[in-house]
Computed example of a mutant assay.
Amino acid sequence: MLPPLGLVLAGGQGRRMGGRNKGWVEYQGRPLVEQVIERLRPQVDSIVISANTDIDRYQALGFPCLPDTRPDYPGPLAGIAATWAHAPGHTLLCVPVDAPHLAPNLAARLGQALGSCAAPAAIAHDGERLQPLFALLRPDLAARLETDLAHGPLAVGRWFRDIGATVVDFSDQPGAFVNLNTPEDLVG
């Protein structure tokens, strides 16, 4: 399988972070988005960022920044759909912007699982719960996603279950999936 296109999902409203754009929140002296990109870059062919605010600031990092094409922050699946509209035919490796400890072998392990089955996507499981924003998606999902989004907002985990995504065990590195969602999470 060719290296996928990396998609950093940074389009949320940051409600639990007091409305701050999580990508630009500093953790250990650097913005989260920079830390995620640093870990993602060796695993992918190129990177795009899905964001709805601070677009110029994200673009200054040297990557395309794509806003949702649907109004009212309909969720990460809208960011995935916007990416496929911009880059059709690409396999996508999706990661959230608030996970600075991203597994260095995320693409390899998800790719190995996807390559050995007919599932349309592979998603991570950290040993305790499903981590659907850490996903590798085949490009033939693009049309299905557009159709499903046309019926309204979708819950990410449920959508992946409905399409028959394969689940990949990452219980050997649960820290790679820690999301920094609140100001309290940044301490430590």
Rank of each mutant, 00 (worst) to 15 (best):
P74K: 14
G11C: 10
H151A: 15
G23R: 03
G75P: 03
L110V: 07
D172C: 04
I80P: 04
P132A: 02
A124G: 01
V33P: 01
E38C: 02
R15C: 00
V187W: 03
A99R: 04
P88T: 10
R20D: 10
D162V: 06
A155Y: 08
Q131W: 10
L186G: 01
E34M: 08
A82L: 13
D162A: 15
L77P: 00
R57H: 13
V44S: 06
T53K: 14
G75N: 07
R41P: 11
L186K: 02
P104G: 12
V8M: 03
A51I: 04
V44M: 12
L93C: 04
A142K: 03
P174R: 05
L7E: 13
L110H: 05
A82K: 09
H86C: 08
A99F: 05
L5E: 00
G152K: 06
R109L: 15
W159F: 09
D54F: 12
G29C: 04
G12F: 03
L9Q: 01
A10E: 00
F134D: 08
G6S: 02
L61C: 05
A99D: 02
I163Y: 00
P64S: 14
G29Y: 08
D45Y: 05
P4E: 01
I47G: 00
D54H: 15
I123G: 02
Q28I: 05
K22L: 14
P96N: 02
L141S: 10
R30K: 14
A142H: 13
Y27V: 12
T91E: 12
P104S: 15
A108T: 09
E38W: 07
R39Y: 12
L9G: 00
R16W: 07
G111A: 14
D45K: 13
Y73N: 15
F160H: 11
A87Y: 13
T147K: 08
Q112V: 09
N105I: 08
L40W: 10
H101C: 09
L106R: 09
L141A: 07
L9R: 10
A119Y: 03
R161K: 08
A165E: 03
F134W: 06
G188Y: 12
P71E: 04
W159I: 07
Q35T: 01
L110D: 08
S116K: 15
G11L: 10
A124F: 13
A81Y: 02
L102M: 15
Q173Y: 09
L149I: 06
V36I: 11
C117N: 03
C94V: 15
D56E: 14
V48A: 12
L32Q: 14
I80Y: 06
W84F: 14
G14F: 10
N105M: 09
A103G: 04
L7G: 04
P31L: 13
R129D: 03
V168C: 12
A60R: 02
L154W: 05
I163D: 07
L66T: 06
D98K: 07
A142N: 05
A60N: 01
L40K: 10
A118W: 00
L145D: 05
A113L: 06
I80Q: 07
G62S: 01
D148M: 03
T69E: 09
G11E: 11
A108Q: 15
E38R: 15
P132I: 01
G12L: 02
K22G: 05
G18S: 11
D162Q: 12
L102D: 14
R20G: 01
S46Q: 12
A150V: 09
V44Q: 10
A118Y: 00
S50N: 03
T147S: 14
D54G: 02
A122P: 08
